[in-house]
Design a protein around this nucleic acid. Structure first.
Length: 406
RNA sequence: GGCACCGUAGCCAAGCGGUAAGGCAGGGGUCUGCAAAACCCCCAUUCGGCGGUUCGAUUCCGCCCGGUGCCUCCA
């Protein structure tokens, strides 16, 4: 089945074929940098990052351009309020944005043009148009044309940009070039906060940096992918906790597989040509349905667990492991070294709940001694003690591990 | 007022013409000193309501009810 994308121009799913076979040009309207990025920014960044990952997984050569709008009235106003040079101000916020995007697995685009560095191009476009006005989204018209040509494959952005930003872009670009601007227009749906609009006046804007104090960036990404990119998505702590649990499950399973394969002294490679691969591809080909893709990945993780529990052949376990890793690369989930991810995530969770790591280790040592002495009453008392603090002890043949309860 | 979108099990959420994915919660089981984790089984005769089109509708059309967004250079 070919890739089908919902094109805002026609408001329907259309079969996607690149203008130049094998190559795709993607332009996404990026962030206007006057504050820290919020969860709504995370939504579009993750959505298009995933789209690009999938195109590349599909063996297409992608040129991904995502701009930084680093000059506009809001930026100038904000910089002036702080007595700062607008250029210095916006440059700083670009760095802050990058810092917050990294934990969400959002990679840099191939080209990240800045509006301030393309003023001559904007002026040239305006001159072509006759009477023109700086602003009116001319920056995206100028930059997309420069890096991707007058007509390119995909233009993306938030739903709010359909009008007036993208209408203006089309009007001025096409007036100047007499060619269609982009063939496919993709718009991600809005993020609401508990089904309510996220806005400064309502005081419910959540920036990524604050969220990262409590949650693993990958959990935030998993939450964002749990709904198709075009649908509205409602932010709430329970949905985030669900996503966090899913990421936990992924890494626990991967780690279990690693331990299993190491015990079997398996050093081969897994093959990734299973029937599930087709199902996964079809889900993504259906307008990048990450929710469906995630369900398929989940099913595969379950199989991986079942095979380990059932003491399956190492090759079978390695195959399944290779497959979940492969799909994970498209979704940007489960890409870290499992043991490190588990450790980092546990530290974050412990910090969130105010649990002292050293204290837990000490309790585990005490309990281990009690268990060796067959003093199970004492061992259970220690379990209850740490449990009261939100820590769960997990006994295994190799020793006692622990986790922070959700 | 104009224009969109949404309403699927207790909760989150796919599917959008062929007879309801997945997750959480819940119930039962295997395993376990205890406890988890993991796995297996169960959990919507039904998709806001009423009509219509169709051999067949959660999926298309109309109306109604409920929720949200845009129409101010907010992703």
């Amino acid at each position: 089945m070919p890739l089908r994308l919902t094109n805002t121009l026609s408001d329907r799913k259309e079969e996607f074929t690149p203008l130049t076979p094998g190559r795709v040009g993607v332009y996404v309207c990026g962030i206007t940098v006057y504050d820290l990025p919020h969860i709504g920014h995370a939504r579009f960044l993750v959505a298009f990052d995933t789209a690009v990952r999938f195109l590349r997984w599909s063996k297409l050569h992608v040129t991904y351009v995502r701009n930084w709008t680093d000059v506009d009235d809001k930026i100038i106003k904000r910089a002036n309020e702080r007595g700062e040079d607008p250029a210095v101000f916006s440059a700083r916020y670009i760095e802050e944005c990058k810092r917050d995007m990294a934990p969400l697995g959002v990679a840099s685009a191939d080209i990240e043009p800045k509006a301030t560095e393309h003023v001559p191009e904007m002026i040239a476009l305006i001159e072509k148009l006759g009477k023109g006005r700086p602003g009116w989204h001319i920056e995206c018209s100028a930059m997309s044309q420069k890096y991707l040509g007058t007509t390119f494959d995909v233009h993306g952005g938030g739903k709010d940009l359909v009008f007036p930003h993208h209408e203006n872009e089309i009007a001025q670009s096409e007036a100047a070039s007499d060619q269609p601007l982009a063939r496919f227009w993709l718009h991600n749906g809005f993020m609401t906060m508990d089904s309510e609009k996220m806005s400064k006046s309502l005081g419910n804007v959540r920036n990524i940096r604050d969220l990262l104090k409590s949650w693993d960036g990958e959990s935030i990404r998993a939450f964002l992918l749990s709904t198709p990119y075009r649908h509205p998505i409602s932010f709430n702590d329970m949905a985030l906790a669900d996503a966090d649990g899913r990421v936990e499950y992924f890494y626990e399973t991967l780690h279990k597989a690693d331990v299993y394969l190491a015990a079997k002294k398996f050093s081969g490679r897994g093959a990734i040509e299973g029937p599930t691969r087709d199902a996964f591809r079809e889900a993504m080909e259906d307008d990048l349905n990450t929710a469906q893709a995630l369900a398929i990945v989940n099913e595969l993780y379950k199989q991986l667990n079942a095979n380990i529990d059932g003491k399956a052949a190492a090759q079978k376990v390695a195959d399944l492991r290779a497959e979940v890793i492969d799909f994970g690369r498209v979704l940007g989930l489960g890409e870290r070294e499992p043991i490190e991810a588990i450790r980092d995530r546990r530290s974050l969770a412990a910090h969130r709940k105010g649990i002292d790591l050293g204290w837990v280790e000490e309790r585990i040592r005490e309990r281990l001694a009690a268990r060796k002495a067959k003093d199970f009453a004492r061992a259970d008392a220690i379990r209850a003690e740490v449990s009261a603090k939100g820590v769960e002890l997990r006994d295994a043949a190799t020793g006692t591990d622990w986790r922070v309860l959700p």
